[in-house]
Design a binder for these strands. Structure first.
Lengths: 199, 199
DNA sequence: CTTGAACAAGACAGGTCTGTCTGTCAACAT
DNA sequence: ATGTTGACAGACAGACCTGTCTTGTTCAAG
């Protein structure tokens, strides 16, 4: 089972599912589209067609729903990335294909940046721990690919690539995918050729 | 007159100033520290020691205050950057000194990322125009330095550097200045040496 | 001295927010 | 048949939000 960009965008109410799933899917869509604070509990309850007490039976507070949303978002985003790049065999190709995969994401309808960057920016220093956990997981995944590709100092290379990715996400969010695509490709190419030449 | 990092952090109530200045300075501090939506009008009014009608006489709505805050933030941040790098003579030194200046900012007490990235993330697609205007002004300033330094294709180089800067801001905000410093320096060095070698 | 502008303090309205509570109903197991 | 469980519907409380309005004070210009 792989996840597609539609899963990242969030689907509709899905009335055949149980109450918890409907609430979580509605929150998944609204939290990403409008932000955490701008999305009220009442709207999530209304759009998911659920009673208020059913909501509070499954999620003790709004914060618990936000945490569940971030957990789900993390799982789906990482699964989408692996599915998008999974057919590639070598770690070197995996790294080279990263900018193209991200560009697909930037151009997907409903793209509004990274849910974890946005959530961290909104919640400030007491943001949910998942916001930084997601980035550490992505950094670890990239570092693994660098190590498997035989690049020297894979931690440093991964840190450089992650910083470029974060910048591309922000640029795509504020100015559109075209503003991020070529700079991201160039920074990737420079970093990888620099690391590859040193080994 | 130059601006320091203290100005970027925002000063206290300053009771000797007039009502509008006190409101704007308080908003400047609270909006950056807590976010736009999390900061209520009542708190700004209370902390600035101003009557509610005095506030609404100078700012017709909260949105107008947000716009004024972003305008002031833009002016101070750009002035701080020019003051921090102004003593450098050549455009090439100016570009080379950018990562160090940004690192100073990342390590300043109260640093919470870029007010314009955060504001854009919070407000979504209908964010105040100043959020993207600030980034375009910074891109134009960097491109000017690239052109004055004689680099070929200064627009592309500036786009690469700006993307790295955005990434460094986000990384510093989420993981601390140490996570951003070295990757930003390396990406700058690679990009500038790549551009310099081509001319 | 008078007049008017700016300001302080705070009540108030109308809306929204989270979270609690009371009913009612259908499905299902014992 | 009867009790249990989960869910729907919606009222309600208490807090907070933006924005308006009233009242009284200070101060400076005419």
């Amino acid at each position: 089972m792989t996840f597609t960009l539609d899963d990242l965008a969030g689907s509709g109410p899905l009335p055949e599912h149980d109450a918890r799933t409907r609430v979580l899917e509605t929150a998944y869509r609204l939290f990403y589209r409008q932000g955490l604070r701008a999305t009220g509990i009442d709207r999530i309850i209304a759009e998911s067609g659920v009673a208020k007490m059913s909501f509070y039976r499954h999620f003790p507070s709004k914060q618990a729903l936000i945490d569940a949303y971030l957990d789900l978002r993390h799982a789906r985003w990482m699964a989408w990335l692996e599915g998008r790049l999974g057919k590639l065999s070598s770690p070197r190709d995996w790294l080279a294909a990263l900018p193209g995969a991200l560009d697909d994401w930037f151009r997907a309808p409903g793209f509004r940046g990274c849910a974890f960057i946005n959530g961290h920016a909104e919640a400030g220093p007491d943001a949910p721990a998942m916001t930084v956990m997601h980035k550490r997981a992505l950094a670890a995944r990239i570092e693994r690919a660098c190590a498997e590709a035989g690049l020297p100092q894979p931690g440093e290379v991964a840190a450089d690539l992650l910083l470029a990715i974060e910048g591309a996400i922000v640029r795509a969010q504020m100015e559109g995918a075209d503003a991020a695509q070529q700079p991201l490709r160039r920074l990737f190419a420079r970093t990888l050729s620099d690391a590859g030449g040193k080994q």
